[in-house]
């Protein structure tokens, strides 16, 4: 069963069409990768799905119901959570407090704090519970971004470039967490720029360019696709 269906999703900012008539669906239990060159509209697409932006037209159907116009915090209750590409920190809150707040969306106070401690250890931030964002490295901040999402106990998790800016070795920790979650039945949609990572992690890939979907297939087939090579890899070769 499709947990998420995107139907003809379009978003215009003034004269610019950031996302243009994009349709695809996400099957329960898969890891779907979304790739595309810079400015292709991936983050906008995420904001539309997670209801941070309202689409100009089209529909987002989650668990059989349209979620257009449903506030983001309600979606978290229903099990749909997103991370942010630009790490969103809480200046005056330490790691444990932030993850506890996320866990409060499903658990009472005392349980939430214990559970948050578990999640923090699972993503590899153990021992850093009392650190505030200013003393966290970029890698740790990205892990915190993942921990926040995990602590809400989602069914569907949208990860926006959680590996960006990390070295290939540093991506191991978040990747292991994502795979572990997926084994437990959480569906994952990830936007990623780090190609080797997404090629290994994703079961299926959607390619976006200039706001439009240009391909959708398994990683092995995608790398052979001429349109994808032109749009995406071609750009990398030129650069």
């Amino acid at each position: 069963m499709a947990i998420l269906q995107i139907a003809g999703l379009t978003k215009c900012f003034g004269g610019l069409t950031a996302v243009n008539d994009v349709s695809f669906s996400v099957e329960e239990g898969e890891i779907l990768g979304i790739i595309g060159p810079n400015g292709a509209g991936k983050t906008t697409l995420f904001s539309l799905i997670s209801s941070f932006l309202k689409p100009t037209s089209g529909d987002v159907i989650y668990l059989g119901e349209s979620i257009v116009g449903v506030p983001p915090h309600v979606l978290v209750q229903r099990g749909l959570v997103r991370s942010f590409q630009i790490v969103q920190t809480f200046a005056d809150m330490d790691v444990l407090d932030v993850v506890t707040t996320a866990a409060l969306s499903r658990r009472p106070m005392l349980e939430a704090e214990d559970y948050a401690g578990d999640v923090i250890r699972r993503v590899g931030l153990g021992g850093k519970e009392r650190l505030t964002p200013t003393s966290l490295s970029l890698q740790d901040k990205k892990l915190l971004e993942v921990a926040k999402c995990v602590a809400t106990e989602p069914r569907l998790i949208l990860l926006d470039e959680v590996m960006a800016g990390l070295t290939l070795a540093e991506t191991e920790a978040p990747l292991a967490v994502i795979r572990e979650l997926n084994r437990q039945g959480v569906t994952v949609v990830m936007v990623e720029h780090v190609m080797p990572v997404i090629m290994r992690a994703a079961t299926r890939i959607v390619v976006i360019n200039f706001g439009e979907k240009i391909a959708e297939d398994t990683p092995a087939t995608i790398v052979e696709d001429q349109r994808v090579i032109d749009a995406y890899f071609g750009e990398l070769v030129d650069a």
Binding site: S50, F52, V76, Q77, V81, R82, T89, S105, K148
Partner: peptide, 8 residues
């Protein structure tokens, strides 16, 4: 925004 994203 980040508060909303974790269900607040």
């Amino acid at each position: 925004a980040a508060a909303q994203a974790i269900g607040v």
